[in-house]
């Protein structure tokens, strides 16, 4: 077990009481927290030098009726031990009308990630300056990356129903 990870774990546990910290791999630290404390945890990590937001991801746990947001943080540093660390901050929110505060005030590059998750998962990020469509052109009833969106059925219903021009002419 590496020193940086354990000292960071102790440091975090002394500041926050309702979080769960585990060192899952050699250099992967997983923090599970409530949705309200994401901002404070991320800003304290940022103050500790973990200043690179690598990814904001989302997992749809449809059986538990929850969406899990994963913020992956690493550090811009030439210190080799610290550079290896990847911190996964996880929080769970309800699937119906999911809402969360934006983390753009801490990590500026969160903007496109949050826009993408808004579009693909329907999560509403409060305080985000422009939650306008990023990737998609058509509108979908269920946000397409959720587990209950069936792409194969969608393809059959939309793309396969469009007739070939030759067929149409033949029928007329």
């Amino acid at each position: 077990m590496n020193h940086t990870g354990t000292s960071l774990k102790e440091n975090l546990l002394s500041y926050f009481d309702d979080i769960l910290v585990e060192i899952s791999d050699e250099h992967r630290l997983t923090i599970s927290c409530k949705k309200d404390s994401v901002i404070t945890i991320l800003s304290s990590l940022n103050r500790n030098g973990y200043n690179h937001l690598a990814l904001i991801s989302c997992v749809d746990w449809i059986k538990d009726n929850e969406l899990e947001l994963v913020y992956i943080i690493s550090a811009y540093t030439e210190d080799s031990e610290k550079g290896k660390m990847n911190i996964l901050v996880k929080t769970k929110i309800a699937r119906e009308k999911p809402e969360l505060l934006t983390v753009m005030s801490i990590y500026e590059n969160a903007e496109p990630y949050e826009r993408e998750l808004h579009e693909l998962y329907g999560i509403n990020f409060k305080g985000h300056p422009r939650l306008i469509p990023l990737l998609l052109e058509r509108e979908y009833e269920i946000p397409p990356f959720r587990k209950d969106f069936d792409t194969r059925k969608y393809v059959q219903d939309v793309f396969d129903k469009i007739p070939f021009v030759e067929d149409k002419k033949g029928r007329k």
């Binding site: 690598a54 990814l55 991801s57 997992v59 992956i72 500026e108 903007e111 496109p112």
Partner: peptide, 29 residues
């Protein structure tokens, strides 16, 4: 830096995959 967040739930397929691609921040922010 290219990253991949991969989740498995014990089945023969990935449960969730998310690529962290370098151009994403370069091109959008």
């Amino acid at each position: 830096e290219l990253g991949l967040y991969l989740v498995s739930n014990g089945e023969n397929k990935p449960y969730r995959a998310h690529f962290r691609t370098p151009s994403y921040n370069h091109g959008l922010t």
